[in-house]
Amino acid sequence: MTAAALIAVLFGMLLLLIRAIAGPTLYDRVLAVNSFGTKTVLALGLLGFVMGRPQFLDIAILYALINFVSTIAILKFFRYRSFQVPLVRRGQGGGNG
């Protein structure tokens, strides 16, 4: 059962890879990379159960955190063209650095 789920997730990774390579706009690629990270997390968790070692779930959770942070960084780069702008604007004038 878990093996079937693992195969399905790997197939999904292949589809997302096609979208990331072919994706016409930048946001297709950002979304593809983010979903690909989620698929990696799922594949790692399932792989732990298929290999009989559910401790891999901890590693999968860590990957989820890293994936989230890097997606935030990419989107921030697109919104502001820089990493130096704080995400939360303080008051009125501090936003556009």
Partner: peptide, 17 residues
């Protein structure tokens, strides 16, 4: 170059897995 950066992120994720 942007697609290459995104794909290098995917490369790192796959190799980490």
């Amino acid at each position: 170059l942007f697609a290459i950066v995104m794909l290098s992120g995917i490369y790192s994720l796959v190799s980490a897995a």
